[in-house]
Computed example of a mutant assay.
Amino acid sequence: MSESGMSARRWWREPLLHFLLIGILLFPVFHWFGDVRAGDRILVTRERIDAMAEAFARTWQRAPTSQELEGLVDDYVRDVMAAREARAMGLDQDDVVIRRRLRQKLEFLAEDSVTASPPTEHQLQDWLDAHPDPFRTDPEYAFRQVFLDPLKRGDALEKDAARLLQRLQALGGDANIRNVGDSLMVPRDIERMKVGEIARVFGDRFAQQVIRLQPGSWSGPIRSEFGAHLVYLYDRRTGAVPPLGEIRPQVEREYLAARRREALDDLYRSLRQRYPVVIESEGEATLATGDGT
C-alpha cells in the first residue's frame, strides 16, 4: 500500500475527526429539540400576576397572601399546560362546547367594535324617530261605567241591563249616572286609565272589551270581576313618544343592540363568502351560496 493510502487510513481513525462528524450530524437535531423546548416554555409575566392579584382583591376585598398568590399562579400554569396538552392530543376537535365558546369570543370581538365609541345625540334621535313604537307610552282610556250587581239582581240582571242600556243610549254620554245602577267602590267616571290599570281594577276580560269599544255610545253589559257594567267610552288617547332626554338610556340600549346584530350579520355574511357550505340531503349534496340562498 502506498504511503498516501496509509496516511488516509490513519486520518479516518482519528477520534477528533469522529467527534467533529458526530457533532455536525447532531447539531440540527439538538437545534430542533431546543426550539421545541423553548416553544413549550410557559411565561408568567409580572403583568399577569398583578392582574390575578387585582381580580382576587375585587372578589375578596383584600390583597392575596403570598401563599394565595402562589396558588393563583400555579392554577394559571395548570390551565395553560392542560390546554396545550389537550390541543396536542386533538381534544379540541369536534367539541361542541369549545366550538361554541370560540364562536362566542369571535362574536364578542365583532360586538366590541360597535361599543368602542358611544352614539351621538343625533344618531339616537334618528333611531328614535325611525323606531318610535317600542318607546311609546301605553294608550289611555276615559270612560263612564254603571254597575249592576248580580247578587242583588239575580236572574233579572240581563233584563235590567237591557232596559237600562236603552235608557242611557237615549240620554247620551252626558247622562247623570250618579244614582243609576248599584253601588261599587270604584268611580263611575274614569278620566284616564291605561290598559294595565283597567285590568287591575276590573279584570283582564273587562279591559280587553273596553279597549275595543267605539267612542261615543253606551255599550254592554260587560262582565268584570265584580259583575256587569254598562260602559260609555268617550276618549281614547294614543300613546305618545317621550322626548329623547327622558328615555335616553332605553334608546341607547336598543340602538346598540341593533348595531350589534348588524355587526354579527355583516361578520357572517363575509365569512359565508370565504367558506363554501355543502348541505347533504337524501341522495344529493347541495352547495349553499355565500348569501345563504
Rank of each mutant, 00 (worst) to 15 (best):
A175R: 03
A170K: 12
Q250D: 11
A116P: 01
D174V: 01
G5K: 13
I42Q: 01
E68A: 09
R136V: 00
L16F: 12
Q209T: 09
M1Q: 03
M81E: 06
F226D: 05
A142G: 15
M1F: 08
A53W: 02
A240T: 09
E225I: 09
D235W: 07
E246V: 07
Q61E: 10
P187C: 04
Y141R: 12
L26N: 08
R87V: 13
F202A: 05
G154S: 04
A63M: 13
R253C: 02
P187V: 02
V36H: 05
S7L: 15
E85F: 15
G71C: 04
W60M: 02
I190A: 01
G220R: 13
E121R: 15
R178P: 00
M81Q: 09
V77D: 03
F19Q: 07
P276I: 03
E280W: 07
E197M: 14
E107V: 01
G181A: 11
G216Q: 10
Q125L: 03
G181Y: 05
Q125F: 03
I279Y: 10
A263P: 00
M6W: 06
K105H: 14
A88Y: 09
K152V: 12
E225A: 12
V80L: 05
E158W: 07
F19G: 10
V241M: 09
E197Y: 09
W218M: 02
V277C: 05
E111N: 08
A175P: 02
V241R: 00
R58C: 00
R84N: 07
Q145Y: 02
I24D: 03
H18W: 11
S2F: 09
D291H: 09
Q67G: 10
R48A: 11
D75V: 14
P15K: 05
A257R: 15
Q209I: 06
P139N: 12
Y255M: 04
R260S: 10
D75K: 14
I247C: 04
F19D: 02
E284W: 07
R37A: 14
E47P: 00
P150Q: 03
A88L: 05
P249S: 06
F226I: 06
L26I: 11
G181I: 12
R261P: 00
R205D: 10
D266K: 14
E254L: 15
I247R: 05
V186L: 02
E107K: 09
A207C: 06
E111S: 14
A63Q: 13
I222M: 10
V195S: 10
E85S: 13
L256N: 07
E14V: 06
L264C: 01
R253A: 15
H31V: 01
E280C: 01
T289I: 02
A199L: 08
L16Q: 04
S270G: 09
D94K: 12
D174T: 08
Y268P: 00
P150F: 12
S217C: 04
E54M: 11
L124Q: 06
L164W: 00
S281K: 15
L20W: 10
E284C: 05
D189C: 06
R100I: 00
D235Q: 15
V201A: 02
S66P: 03
H229I: 05
V186E: 03
M52E: 08
P119D: 10
R237Q: 15
Y234Q: 06
L164E: 03
K105N: 11
E158S: 12
G196L: 12
G292R: 15
P15N: 00
F135Q: 08
M89C: 09
A240Q: 15
G172A: 10
V114G: 04
F108K: 11
